[in-house]
């Protein structure tokens, strides 16, 4: 570990200790919630009210302010989960294990939201709730990958081996996601091309783009809040017999 600067490695060592993580989370959560509400409020107001109406799609394009950030999050959370899984497998850090399994339901929910909002948007635009389009299909497969992780975790009784199993599966999945994505894209595409991530100049108007990015950041904060909350509960569940939980509970009551 010599290649990691001392402050960073110290930070990780302290974060890996459950009591420290628990106290820090308790301190952070109110702040994160405030930031999240502010961002969400502004993003929704700007997206639904301030942003101009699209000349082709009318007002129904405004669903992108939920759909696109949710779709981004669905992939982002999988990568976070796999990274935590790798950390948990390599350094056997308990908290990383907890992060993996707490990420899965959040990621699955975002994937589900992306699918539902996409289908709601598809009804007026494409005239049908569902088409076997490349990105819709790979999003659906992503949902199956998440569900596989959740059900595997539920099926293994010993939660320590369940965490390891889930981490291995998440790593296998993260290698496969690009392959699945491109093969499905190659198979069929009808979805509108990427409008934000084009290298030279996004083909989306700046007044529409800013609320979208704000919403994306708001969703990131929401993810952080949901993840930390879930991790806190899971941590208490797993450490219920340890000394620090007992002393903490005594001091609180």
């Amino acid at each position: 570990m010599s290649f990691v600067p001392a402050p960073i490695s110290r930070f990780f060592h302290r974060m890996a200790s459950p009591p420290h993580f628990y106290c820090l989370t308790n301190k952070l959560l109110p702040w994160l919630t405030v930031i999240f509400i502010l961002l969400l409020g502004y993003g929704l107001y700007a997206g639904l009210y301030l942003a101009p109406t699209d000349y082709q799609q009318g007002d129904s394009y405004r669903i992108i302010y939920v759909h696109v950030p949710a779709a981004w999050m669905s992939l982002f959370i999988y990568v976070v989960m796999a990274t935590a899984g790798a950390i948990g497998l390599i350094w056997r850090i308990k908290l990383a294990d907890i992060m993996v399994i707490c990420s899965a339901p959040i990621g699955a929910s975002f994937t589900f939201i992306a699918l539902v909002t996409g289908s709601l948007w598809g009804k007026p635009m494409w005239g049908t709730w569902w088409v076997w389009d490349a990105r819709l299909t790979s999003e659906l497969i992503l949902l199956f990958l998440y569900l596989g992780i959740i059900s595997l975790y539920g099926a293994i009784e010993d939660k320590r081996s369940a965490s390891r199993a889930v981490s291995i599966l998440a790593l296998v999945g993260v290698v496969n996601i690009p392959i699945i994505h491109y093969s499905v894209e190659w198979w069929n595409t009808l979805h509108q091309g990427p409008t934000v991530t084009k290298i030279d100049k996004p083909s989306i108007h700046i007044d529409m783009l800013i609320p979208l990015l704000v919403m994306a950041i708001a969703f990131k904060f929401y993810h952080l809040i949901a993840l930390l909350q879930a991790a806190k509960v899971e941590l208490l569940k797993r450490e219920q017999n340890s000394q620090w939980v007992k002393t903490m509970l005594e001091s609180e009551t």
Partner: peptide, 18 residues
């Protein structure tokens, strides 16, 4: 494990199927 096995493995079979 049978049902879970299909849930785990079938999504990974998608590229070769395509």
């Amino acid at each position: 494990g049978g049902m879970i096995l299909s849930l785990l493995v079938l999504p990974l079979y998608v590229p070769v199927l395509i």
